[in-house]
Every structure is written in C-alpha cells, then in structure tokens.
C-alpha cells in the first residue's frame, strides 16, 4: 500500500481561448494549471489556497478527472488514473468524491434529498450490501439531518443544511478522498463553523483524506495538516501548516498572509501591500510568474522559472532567493517582519 493516497506530478491544463482581435482571430491558451506536483497522505488534509483564478478548482477537477489534463500524472492509491477505461474510471469515482462551493447550484432542485443522497448508490451500489433506504438514513444522520428530511426538496433548506446534503451525498459510497472545493465560502460564519466541525468529525471517524480548496487562509489553517499555496497556475510554496504559517518563505505567501485581517484590534500588523494585480494566465510573466509584483525580484527572476525545491524537510518553495537568510527573519509573534520591504500603492 502506497503511503501517499494521491500523487500528482507535473499536472498541466491549458484551455484554448478565442480572442477576437480587430483584424485577426487568434487562438491562445489559458494556462490554468501549469505544472503542479504534490501528494496527499492517507488520512491527512492538504489545504490548497490561492486567490481567484489561480487554478485551485481546476486542479481539483483534474484530480477527479471531471476534466482531462493536458499532461501530467495523477496516481490514486498507486494506480495511474490517466489510462483508465470506463469501468475502472467508474470504480475510481467511487473512491474520490467532491463537495462544491455553492450549496444552491450544486443540488438538483427537482430531486428530493433522499434521491440526491441516494443517487451515487444507484450508480455504484450500496457499500457492504444493506438496503438503500437504510443507508440514506444513516448518511443523513451522520451529517446531522434527520430521516424526515429525505422527502424534502433542496429549496426547503438553508445554505448550511444544503452543504450537509452535499456532504452526505459525497459520503454515500464510502470514498477515501474528498475534494472539498470552497465548501464553506458561501456560508455565514456561524454556519461555516458548524460545517467545518462536521468535516473534522467525519475525518476522525471515517479516516477520510481531504483536499481542501479555499481562499480563506484562516479556515485553511484551521483544518489542514499541510498547505500548498498556488499563484497563477503554479505552486509557490508547500509545507506543514505550522511551518507555512509561522515562517512563510515565498514572498507571495508572506504578502498573502500579511494581508489577512486579524480579528484583534490591539494587534498591529506589518502589512506587505503588493503592487498591481494578478496578471492574466493567458500571457503569464516570464521566469518566476510572481516577479513583476515581487518586492525581492532580481534579474534572474524575469529570466528563469525557479524550480519547486525542498529547502527544509517537507518545505518546498519556488523562488530563486529561497536560500537567503533574509527571508526567514521572524517577529516574536511568529509573523515575518517585512516592514523594511513594504511597498505601498499609495506612494
């Protein structure tokens, strides 16, 4: 049995685009995912964070083969999923499930909750034999809904309840891996906490493995064991959550963490304000994709793409200056002190 449940290597997805210019009709590609590698151990939660459009969700979909990769490898439980035929792919889908962001759009409004939760059972059969109705009740119970909800329709439920329905459906066929794609982003904070607690309980009780995709760095920190940070189609940093949040090394991670508002009015933060905005993935910058906005960029950064390198055990970063000490100076509270390097858009 492989130690890693999921292994992703050099994953690439380029979407073709049609840009209609005034005189020519050119086709280009959006480099949504451009060489991403990571692995997830059994029973762990890997957080995948990044800002909108960085390729997080596409990565999740590629893993489940909801969309086909342009190139790269995905191995689930030691099996390369690329070459799988229809039948094997179906078996694989039983092992990997997904919970989506939008609890309003992701449930079929014309199906009852029982039908929604039971649908994967029709496709894949009921695990360990047993009756379908009994399994549905079990599942509703596990996610904190009751059996009488089975006959109702999604519109009768609140956002948090709908997300529970989505989770029950994902659990139906006893998957090993669940890709959670922004599962709490659409929810109010008090409901968000309920769903996060539920996901953690389920993991503890069922030994689930999660890929937790989100843009909220505090939520990701709370739920993850390790965290990967994505920028413009590529990973810039990956480390244990302790290392990543205590001593982020990549300049983008440092800026990202410093930008998170902290709910403590008495805590003064050093904020690294990045200049400009994320460039388009149609025409990403040369060399290091972050170099036009990076406060530490040097000549080499615009020329060469930095390799994703393990600079400390289990701590990977893609940065030409990764080995310099200056990147690791820490404040007593554990957040990088980067005042000296602060750039302000107001300047």
């Amino acid at each position: 049995m492989a130690e890693a449940l999921l292994e992703v290597k050099d994953l690439v997805k380029h979407f073709p685009t049609k840009s209609k210019g005034m005189f020519s009709k050119r086709t280009g590609v959006v480099k949504a995912v451009d060489g991403v590698s990571f692995s997830i151990k059994r029973g762990e939660t890997l957080g995948l964070v990044g800002e909108s459009g960085c390729g997080k969700s596409t990565t999740g979909r590629l893993i489940l083969r909801l969309i086909e990769p342009t190139s790269g490898e995905v191995a689930f439980d030691g099996t390369d999923v690329r070459g799988l035929g229809k039948r094997d792919l179906r078996a694989l889908r039983r092992e990997m499930q997904i919970v989506f962001q939008d609890p309003y759009a992701s449930l079929n409004p014309r199906m009852t909750v029982g039908q929604i939760v039971g649908e994967p059972l029709d496709v894949h059969g009921v695990p360990n034999g047993g009756g379908k109705q009994q399994r549905i009740q079990e599942l509703l119970d596990v996610v904190g809904l009751s059996a009488y909800h089975a006959g109702r329709y999604p519109h009768e439920f609140s956002g948090g309840q709908r997300q529970r329905i989505g989770i029950a459906r994902a659990l139906a066929v006893n998957p090993k891996l669940i890709v959670c794609d922004e599962p709490v982003s659409a929810l109010d904070v008090s409901i968000q906490a309920q769903v996060i607690n539920l996901l953690q309980d389920l993991q503890a009780n069922l030994g689930l493995t999660y890929l937790f995709i989100a843009h909220d760095l505090s939520v990701v920190k709370h739920i993850s064991d390790r965290v990967a940070v994505m920028y413009l189609g590529g990973l810039v940093e990956l480390a244990s959550k302790e290392a990543l949040y205590r001593s982020p090394m990549h300049p983008y991670t440092q800026a990202l963490l410093s930008a998170v508002p902290v709910p403590d009015p008495e805590r003064k933060k050093h904020r690294i304000l990045l200049e400009g905005e994320i460039p388009s993935p149609i025409n990403p910058p040369s060399g290091c994709r972050f170099h036009p906005r990076c406060p530490h960029a040097q000549e080499i950064c615009s020329a060469e793409d930095p390799a994703f390198t393990e600079v400390e055990t289990g701590h990977f970063i893609a940065c030409h200056r990764s080995r310099e000490r200056a990147f690791r100076c820490l404040s007593p509270k554990g957040r990088t002190v980067a005042k000296r390097l602060t750039t302000s858009t107001l300047a």
Binding site: G160, I191, Q194, I196, N197, K221, H222, V262, P263, D264
Partner: peptide
C-alpha cells in the same frame, strides 16, 4: 466561530441552529 490566524484551536465553537 471564526478561525484565527494567530491562534490554534482544535475545534471551533459554532452557534447551533440557523
């Protein structure tokens, strides 16, 4: 209910109900 970047909590408190 909110996870805090500066703090580690095993479990969020959450408010029951809706």
């Amino acid at each position: 209910s909110i996870p805090n970047l500066d703090e580690d909590r095993a479990r969020l408190q959450s408010i029951d109900g809706i």
